[in-house]
């Protein structure tokens, strides 16, 4: 990276208006059934955000909307003050572990290198330098010795670490992690939390979909309670309390659910 752009980025940072992620009035619906309703929040740089909510609350949909993979009915999403597509390089995504076929003939090292593919670009080959960087990322997660293993030989936790390494190697500034802690061993969980904290301390931002309410206060400094709409967003110690959780998990908006369902089937109820 040359000095010119470096300077430019510093200038931008100093203005401090370009939050890593800024979402205004985001509304998403599938076949007229709202999945996200009027979601608004701003994630500031250097924060570790837990995204918490019941099943079907729209957490994964939120990620997809951020990455511009699904059409939205309204609202605006700014990633580093820009459209996502323009800032794609600076966003790293860790999909759910179940999303791929782990029997696929690749090694763990190759999977991590995939994080560099868009940087390498079309028609260019993976070089030794790229492999070294992939290995360094794996080192950080303690799986460097598994680089040549086929991915089906890894344990669930190791597979999750491989996915995280693939995101790290990208050296992004905003991380979107979809349930990185689901069905992993304790060691993996500790390492992932450590890495996420390092990222935060380096001024990066991470949004983490998380299910285990017990660990939320100790893992995340900021929390987004989501159930169709934003129930609460803010510092964990201020927001993460019984009343909000009750609203997130208890108060299902049954009437709204029924009405939107009726809308979808074009019935009056």
């Amino acid at each position: 990276m040359n000095n010119g752009t470096d300077f430019g980025r510093q200038a931008l940072d100093r203005r401090a208006v370009t939050a890593p992620l800024e979402i205004q009035h985001l509304t998403v619906s599938f076949a007229r059934k709202p999945v996200l309703w009027d979601v608004t929040f701003v994630a500031s740089a250097g924060s570790l955000i837990g995204v918490v909510g019941p099943n079907g609350a729209g957490k994964s949909t939120l990620f997809k909307a951020i990455m511009d993979l699904i059409p939205r009915q309204g609202g605006e999403i700014r990633v580093f003050g820009d459209r996502f597509t323009a800032q794609r390089r600076r966003v790293a995504y860790v999909p759910q572990r179940e999303s791929v076929d782990w029997d696929f003939p690749v090694t763990a090292g190759e999977v991590v290198t995939m994080g560099l593919y868009s940087e390498i670009g079309w028609f260019r080959r993976v070089t030794r330098e790229h492999r070294r960087r992939a290995l360094a990322a794996m080192e950080r997660l303690g799986i460097a010795d598994l680089a040549n293993r086929q991915i089906s030989e890894l344990s669930g936790g190791q597979q999750q670490r491989t996915f995280l390494a693939r995101a790290l190697v990208q050296q992004a500034d905003l991380y979107l992690l979809d349930e990185p802690f689901s069905a992993v061993d304790a060691a993996t969980e500790t390492i992932i939390v450590e890495v996420l904290r390092e990222l935060r301390d380096a001024g990066k931002t991470a949004l983490v979909i998380h299910h285990d309410l017990q660990t939320v206060p100790s893992y995340f400094d900021t929390v987004l309670l989501l159930n169709l709409r934003v129930v609460a967003f803010g510092k964990t110690d201020e927001v993460f309390q019984a009343e909000n959780l009750q609203k997130t998990y208890g108060g299902r908006l049954t009437l709204l659910d029924e009405a939107t369902e009726a809308m979808r089937h074009r019935r009056t109820i």
Binding site: E258, M263, R267, T268
Partner: peptide
Amino acid sequence: SLEHFTAQPL
């Protein structure tokens, strides 16, 4: 948009 799908019971 919701009003058009709402009848007396709801």
